Amino acid sequence: MAGVVVLAGCTSGGGADGYESPPRSQASESAPAGPQTPLVPAKVPTETVDQFGKLKLTLHRPERRSDNDGELAIRAWVTYTRAYYNALATYVVDPELAKVATDDEFKQLRDYFADRKASQDRVGGELEITVRPRYSEDGTSLSGCMDQSGLRIVHANETLHPDPEVVKKPEVDLLPDLTRESGEWRVESFGDGGMSRISNFCAGGEWPH
């Protein structure tokens, strides 16, 4: 299940739980089972800045990986993260989320978003996330740091307020979990390392501030 410190609510939308998103089965059926094709373009932006409602999300990622498989894993997680926070900030689920989350994770996210609907709160302010590849004998995985010091809760009256939990923990270590599903890289967990693992990525000094 995706780990996040703040609580964000939802309002009514196109789906049964107030969100607009396609059936998860459609995304699974459309995913190719064979080898993935070479990626284009050859270069990708190392920084993206999105404005989702009252939330400004800045994502930093490495230069384009030379190995196709590693690059696809990074892209899956970046797509997941942007869609995830878009939903928390605007109440609308980007259809891309269904394509990059595992079946189980997507179902849990739907429940999570529905639960947040009752709170009538959204995510706002500023959030900065950096992801880096990690190399080991077992292969390549991802790690990251989330600077949520500027993150705020947006109440139903559109006012922004600090989250006490964020104030206590302005930086969060990330260790995303990805796996293969239907021939594609899919995200199993957002990867809040501070919740389940002993990690210290943010303190490593490699993250933009």
Results as ranks from 00 to 15, higher is better:
Gly70Pro: 08
Asn68Leu: 15
Ala73Leu: 12
Leu39Ser: 10
Pro45Thr: 12
Ala87Ile: 08
Asp67Trp: 11
Pro41Lys: 01
His60Asn: 12
His60Gln: 09
Thr81Ile: 09
Asp50Trp: 02
Asn86Ser: 07
Phe52Trp: 03
Val44Ser: 14
Tyr85Gly: 02
Pro41Phe: 07
Arg64Phe: 03
Leu72Cys: 11
Gln51Asn: 11
Tyr85Asn: 02
Leu39Arg: 11
Ile74Trp: 06
Gly53Val: 02
Ile74Thr: 14
Arg75Phe: 10
Val40Tyr: 11
Ala42Arg: 03
Tyr91Leu: 09
Asn86Trp: 04
Leu57Ser: 01
Thr48Leu: 07
Thr46Ser: 09
Asn68Arg: 15
Gly53Lys: 02
Pro41Val: 10
Ala83Cys: 04
Tyr80Gly: 01
Val92Tyr: 08
Leu55Arg: 00
Ala83Tyr: 02
Thr79Asp: 15
Leu59Thr: 11
Asp67Leu: 14
Thr81Ser: 08
Tyr80Ser: 06
Pro62Ser: 06
Glu63Ile: 10
Ala83His: 04
Arg65Ser: 13
Lys54Thr: 13
Pro62Trp: 01
Thr58Lys: 01
His60Leu: 03
Leu59Gly: 04
Val78Asn: 05
Leu72Tyr: 12
Glu63Asp: 14
Pro62Lys: 00
Tyr91Ser: 14
Arg64Ser: 15
Leu55Gly: 00
Gly53His: 01
Asp50Ser: 06
Leu39Cys: 08
Thr46Asn: 10
Gly70Ala: 14
Val44Met: 12
Glu47Gln: 06
Tyr84Cys: 05
Leu55Ile: 00
Glu71Gln: 15
Glu71Arg: 15
Glu71His: 13
Tyr85Leu: 03
Asp67His: 12
Phe52His: 07
Glu47Asn: 02
Arg82Leu: 01
Arg61Glu: 14
Val40Pro: 00
Thr90Phe: 09
Asp69His: 10
Lys54Glu: 14
Asp94Asn: 04
Asn68Lys: 14
Asp94His: 05
Asp69Val: 12
Ala42His: 03
Pro41Glu: 06
Thr81Met: 08
Arg75His: 13
Val93Met: 02
Ile74Gln: 10
Thr90Arg: 06
Asp94Arg: 00
Ala87Met: 09
Leu57Glu: 07
Ala89Pro: 01
Thr48Ile: 09
Val92Phe: 07
Arg61Thr: 15
Tyr91Phe: 12
Leu88Phe: 12
Val93Pro: 03
Glu47His: 03
Asp67Ala: 15
Tyr80Gln: 08
Tyr84Trp: 11
Arg64Ala: 15
Pro41Ser: 05
Tyr91Ile: 05
Thr81Asp: 11
Lys56Gln: 05
Gln51Phe: 00
Lys43Gly: 02
Arg75Asn: 15
Ala42Gly: 07
Leu57His: 00
Val93Arg: 05
Trp77Lys: 08
Thr81Lys: 02
Arg65Pro: 01
Glu63Cys: 07
Pro41Gly: 05
Thr79Phe: 02
Thr58Val: 12
His60Ile: 06
Asp67Ile: 13
Ala87Lys: 05
